[in-house]
Every structure is written in C-alpha cells, then in structure tokens.
Amino acid sequence: MSGLTAAILVGALFATGAYLILRRDPIKLILGLTMVSYGVNVLLFTSSTLRKGIPPVIADKKTFTGDISQFVDPLPQALVLTAIVISFGIVAFLVVLVSRRNMLVEQYGKAPDAPTAINDPFGATAHYLSGLDADPDDYEWVDDTFREPAQSERS
C-alpha cells in the first residue's frame, strides 16, 4: 500500500463516517463511528514507513547488525491493535445502549408518565411523583433527537 492509496483511503473513510454520523438514525451513527475509527487506524498505520512483506520483528537475532531496513517499526502496529480493541469495546457498548433504548421506547413510548423522569434518574423517587401532575420541564430532555426512522425509511 503506497502512501497515496493510504491517504485516499483515510479521506474516504473519514468522509463516509462524517456523513453517516450526521444522519439521525442511531444505526447509521454507529456505522459512521466505526468508519471514522477505521480511518484513524489506517492513518496510524501509515505513521511509520510502509514496507511490503517485512515482519515487525527481527527475524534472526544473531545475524542482526542494526540495519533497520530489515524490519518494520512494530510500534504503529501495536498502537493500531490497541486502538482497534478500544473502539471495538466502545462500539459494542454503544450498540447495547441503542438496542436498550429502542426496547424502552417500544415498551413505554415517550409518555411523561413513563418511569423516565429526568431528574429522577434511578427511578428512586418515581413512585412519589405518581400521584402528582408531571412537570413538562422535568421531561424536556426526553426528546426526539434520535427519532425512530419513519415508515418509508424503514422499508
């Protein structure tokens, strides 16, 4: 992979990712995030010299003379591995969050009497409020930023 290919790839991944993140659908958002982190991984990979078919380890310790062209820098590969693991974990967490959110929305809708009072985060006092009228401003952040895809989009 030459430097130019890598640059184009990074640019394409970032552009796709940015476009997808700006969608309102949570799934596209997650896909976009994945794209962007792939883009960064490729960028990290190019931060040292790109050489084809050479391992990032010293093949034979005894004949090694200190010539660094015999192996490629292992550090970017270690960095990419770490970054992949971390972004994998976070994206998995995000997927769980989105699926849980969809479940809750389908179960309760967005009615203010759902046990979702924003100032009552753990539902610790939800039952105290049950006899009272709910304040609209207590629920103003149960909003529709991540709206459900419309019927036409869903198909």
Partner: peptide
C-alpha cells in the same frame, strides 16, 4: 447505570 431512557439518550 440506572438504565432509564433519559440516561441512555444522554449516554449515547
């Protein structure tokens, strides 16, 4: 941690 919908929206 609470699993409320407001938290999940904020968390996302």
């Amino acid at each position: 941690l609470g699993g409320q919908i407001g938290q999940i929206n904020g968390g996302i």
